[in-house]
Design a protein around this nucleic acid. Structure first.
Lengths: 361, 361
DNA sequence: CTGTTAGCGCCTTCAC
DNA sequence: GTGAAGGCGCTAACAG
């Protein structure tokens, strides 16, 4: 015996007890005594509809609970009014905030947002995720962090791709709207040098993260520009715990008077390690973070940090995606300013430079 | 002069220089010398296709970069293979983790996830967001936190609604898969009472949040069950800063020997306030949090807390949504166990009870 | 095993 | 100002 598939009429039985078939524009038209086309005109706010008919139709729409079928519309129009977000699967403040801001911007533009989180920056999950987005027919793709492994295949994508975290290096016609991380980092480093510090040490994020690499790169460039020594980088995984480990290491080294951490959470850990080692912030060591997370102002000493305008970044990015209307020849590279927020963790270096004492608490 | 809309032929010009129209199944069929239906069979892995034809078609698909049009498929099938997530627009650990877990579960089931973030728990944005999701034609809606204001209108929705954070109280046929917060809280309170504490104080989350109300409710019930005094609740906004404020208040009161905070970040703030007031944790005051955020184990004294299985919750929820296949008569109410994670912030109360001294550091 | 026909619900062109 | 046909790309049914 073969498997019997019930005929369509049986699976979608008509009649009172039927599983409610979704109401269509034709149903509304029938109820209002007009053509389906007129319903469409009302739904899309076309002017050439008499007020009376419009009311009648709107009434019927209300009564029947009609919602236009987006699939049918997409099929006809060739656009889904949907944007895909490919972001890193992390609850870290930066990516999470940017995802939130992207959702708001996208929805303000009356688009839907399909989200795909990658498993960290794993190449395969980036490819798979991008593919899933394209399969769903998104009109554009917004990429946040997952760019490092992104160039593994040729991507002659049929939709515009916007990167919110830096160049993708995929093609000449790419859309990039990103925070001026380099500018913020440079301001931080210069601020410390201006205070009289001989150099600035760096606690970086994981090197797989493009943002971590960019911040480290900018820090290095700022020091070299000033002709200062570039000390070796310690890297963590963005967590306070890893910052703490790096902080203990730095506390052990003599002559460390200024530290720039690639993320505020790293900075928290560094601060704690310094404190435990008896190095006062900022009297003995100055410290600057990055991100301006909400807690940053509530540290024992409020953290000096670099603030990004993530909301502005996402908004501008989505604006551009809208403006180009799917054209693939339009390139863009915009930078959203960042700001050094001066608080309580920076000051001039101690004179004479502190002698490393064994945990002088 | 009226606005001239170029005729279709002009907007989608044919010919070599044309803006590439998306390749359809028919194009593939032509290239492979088969019917369009056969292409469909290959794409959907139907068995009744000869290996030779299958290869030829797959080759053509590859060459042309064909992707099936999801809108056309959705239109025909009446399902979009898309699930909507209505979640609270917050970077707090709980909602963010659950959103992440939901995305993974949904995508593992080969669905897409449309995300809408509400502006906190504002009634209007909840309604608007839900509406946006339905307009996009999602097959089901997953609701995380935004339930408190959710019953403002009648919601005879045409799609199943799954709540991951507790009953929605919308209808008799609702799907709820949620962490056993009550069980976890009860375990925490009992643990403290078993250690000999007379009662347990509570620092709660914002009362608009259903999860905050449930945790406070469970704490109260546990105390009443044990016949203990129920002290007044202090509430915060989940932040360490608000926990700190509550902690200072509690440190001032004599006889406070045990505190349960509705979130780990609140607990961090409480811990800091206690420390500054010279109340040792756990020697003078025991402290339990909720969530088990990654940093919890890295506090000066590792935090005892209640861990939720958010990944399991989301996975089970999505599984159920899949299983009911869009039927609206299927109710469900499942509970995912939580676990009290004992670490270093709980112990017996001091004997004799500590006299409040002015900051005895 | 493969091709033909039909229609999902909507919006565009053309008639009235 | 409104209605009637047509087709977007796909899959169910049936034919061959």
């Amino acid at each position: 015996m073969s498997v019997e598939v019930p005929p369509r009429a049986e699976r979608f039985p008509a009649g009172p007890a039927a599983a409610a078939r979704r109401v269509s524009g034709t149903d509304v038209a029938r109820a209002a005594g007009v053509s389906q086309r007129t319903v469409s005109r009302v739904v899309n706010n076309f002017p050439q509809v008499s007020p009376d008919v419009r009311r009648r139709v709107q009434r019927a729409i209300e009564d029947l609970g009609y919602r236009p079928n987006s699939a049918a519309r997409s099929l006809l129009l060739g656009r889904t009014r949907t944007i895909g977000l490919l972001t890193v699967g992390s609850t870290a403040y930066g990516p999470a905030s940017l995802a939130l801001a992207t959702e708001r911007a996208v929805r303000a533009a009356a688009y839907g947002l399909l989200v795909v989180n990658t498993v960290e920056l794993d190449a395969e999950s980036v490819e798979t995720g991008l593919s899933a987005l394209l399969d769903q027919g998104v009109d554009a793709v917004v990429v946040n962090e997952p760019t490092s492994t992104f160039r593994s295949r040729r991507h002659d994508l049929a939709v515009p791709v916007l990167s919110l975290s830096g160049p993708l290096e995929l093609s000449a016609t790419e859309l990039v709207v990103a925070s001026d991380e380099a500018g913020g980092v440079a301001a931080a480093v210069r601020h410390l040098l201006d205070l009289g510090h001989a150099t600035v040490h760096h606690v970086g994020g994981p090197t797989e993260w493009p943002s971590a690499r960019r911040r480290a790169q900018a820090w290095r460039a700022a020091l070299e520009d000033a002709g200062r020594e570039v000390p070796p980088v310690l890297t963590g995984d963005w967590s306070p715990a890893s910052g703490y480990a790096a902080g203990r290491e730095l506390a052990r080294r003599p002559g460390v008077t200024a530290i720039f951490a690639a993320g505020d959470h790293l900075a928290f850990g560094v601060a704690r390690a310094l404190q435990e080692a008896g190095r006062r912030v900022p009297a003995d060591v100055s410290l600057i973070g990055f991100d301006d997370v909400p807690e940053a102002a509530f540290m024992t000493r409020a953290l000096t940090t670099v603030r990004q305008d993530l909301v502005g970044t996402a908004a501008r990015g989505v604006e551009i995606v809208q403006a180009i209307e799917g054209r693939l020849d339009a390139g863009a590279l915009e930078t959203i300013p960042t700001r050094l927020v001066l608080r309580e963790t920076t000051g001039p270096p101690p004179t004479p430079p502190p002698v490393p004492t064994p945990a002088a608490r």
